[in-house]
Design a protein around this nucleic acid. Structure first.
Ligand SMILES: NC(=O)c1ccc[n+]([C@@H]2O[C@H](COP(=O)([O-])OP(=O)(O)OC[C@H]3O[C@@H](n4cnc5c(N)ncnc54)[C@H](O)[C@@H]3O)[C@@H](O)[C@H]2O)c1
Ligand SMILES: NC(=O)c1ccc[n+]([C@@H]2O[C@H](COP(=O)([O-])OP(=O)(O)OC[C@H]3O[C@@H](n4cnc5c(N)ncnc54)[C@H](O)[C@@H]3O)[C@@H](O)[C@H]2O)c1
Lengths: 204, 204
DNA sequence: TGTATCATGTGAAAAAAATCACAACAGAGA
DNA sequence: TCTCTGTTGTGATTTTTTTCACATGATACA
């Protein structure tokens, strides 16, 4: 089982979206259809698919349902991934409400905040807990992933605490760069960069 | 002025975040510091910076303020980019409330929705307008960019309408692949893919 | 003032990613 | 049944991106 590059992961999730919503009901799909919709080269699509171990059918393409399932398997959508959100603000609220997370195996267990007005309440059916409780909860249920949605000014401080509590993966939605030990992975959800890349497409 | 790749854009925005929040007050920064924080090769950082036309200083590094401004210039943060949001739900609300957008020149003018309970209200100081008014408003003020945050089932239909109204760039937060004419650019804000990439980091 | 240092800037090399090109062959249709 | 077509699967090539390696020279400091 070879490692799979981030670019491939990104494309495979897009293929999956396509199969899930755009191709609903269709039995087969050709690599060229996927390629056209996503503005890619069709051989690239075939190579991505080959990585999932799916074989296509001459003159017909790939079986939609089989391909969808294989992508799910390859990317581990069915493995349950438990996550805490730290920062129960606007964005934290949106993320708890994101219905499709469950299809990817992403399960938000609770939100943490330091605002006494929010603590004890529920957002999107999930409890908002005092940040102080993080340490305790992490040692009880073994959570490795957090979504960081606190104000940028609080990001490093909260990160330090989370790392100390044993967090291993930080999905960082704040526009800050975080200092963490080598054992911790930060993924920068650099939302503005996406917009700039989109704009750049017109020039390039 | 050569085109700049998406990877470079992504890194430059991260350097910018770093300069803005992590380095506040520091006069100089070395490429190796940036590289360490972001887990990159330092010569890569220097090459990215060279693209912005900034020269460093031997034994000192780059002038933080100068570098920050040059990235802003290179990526066009100070050019005003007017945007409509379509879909005034959880995520639309979070995005209107995203304070840092203004630092990147992203200016959300209004939200559109088809829910009569939302139309006429304000969210984050911006008016929620009936989607029907989009055509009119686009021809009046010349808006090219929309942020799409409607439910996935409505995405294609809303897209078709927006394209017809003259939209050129669609920042698509829905987990769907959109059919658009070649003249229209869709940027897929494939949020789940990020999470999968983060997880992958542990294996790779 | 002199010197050793350390960060830059950049060619050259390596690695990774994408594109090209096409053989193979299953399936549609005559 | 036969032929033609359209799509796969994949080697070869090209392009892009990253890493390596080091000459350069400004700066700190003795
Ligand atoms: N809103 C967006 O769409 C958006 C988009 C991209 C990035 N971001 C970033 O995401 C972060 C959150 O944005 P938001 O709009 O939800 O902000 P927000 O102000 O609505 O929410 C921040 C939440 O964090 C809590 N908080 C503050 N300090 C804390 C601490 N020390 N410990 C625990 N909780 C703390 C606050 O009580 C609040 O509930 C910000 O860094 C923002 O820049 C937001
Ligand atoms: N919530 C998140 O954090 C998150 C994250 C990633 C992606 N998404 C995606 O973003 C989209 C929005 O998510 P959300 O959580 O804000 O959903 P939501 O249900 O809270 O909001 C959707 C909004 O769209 C409006 N709407 C529905 N049909 C419409 C139409 N035809 N024309 C105009 N407006 C219409 C609704 O009235 C509602 O206000 C969804 O596609 C979701 O999958 C959400």
């Amino acid at each position: 089982m070879t490692a799979i590059s981030n670019k491939v992961i990104n494309r495979l999730t897009l293929y999956h979206c396509l199969l899930k919503y755009t191709c609903k009901g269709k039995p087969f799909i050709a690599s060229s259809e996927i390629a056209d919709l996503l503005d890619l080269d069709d051989s690239l699509v075939r190579k991505d698919i080959a990585l999932c171990g799916v074989l296509g059918h001459k003159k017909q393409g790939y079986v939609v349902d089989e391909l969808k399932k294989s992508i799910e398997q390859k990317l581990g959508f069915s493995e349950r991934k438990e996550v805490f959100i730290i920062g129960a603000g606007s964005l934290g609220t949106a993320l708890v409400n994101y219905a499709d997370f469950k299809d990817y195996g992403i399960d938000i267990l609770a939100l943490f905040d330091n605002d006494p007005n929010k603590i004890g309440k529920e957002i999107g059916g999930k409890r908002v807990v005092s940040l102080e409780k993080l340490s305790n909860l992490i040692s009880r249920i073994n959570i490795k992933n957090i979504i960081l949605t606190v104000p940028p000014q609080a990001a490093q401080e909260v990160t330090d605490y989370a790392v100390q509590c044993g967090v291993r993966f930080i999905w960082n939605f704040t526009p800050t760069v975080l200092r963490v030990p080598k054992t911790v992975t930060v993924y920068y959800e650099n939302i503005v960069s996406s917009f700039m890349q989109m704009q750049n497409a017109s020039i390039a």
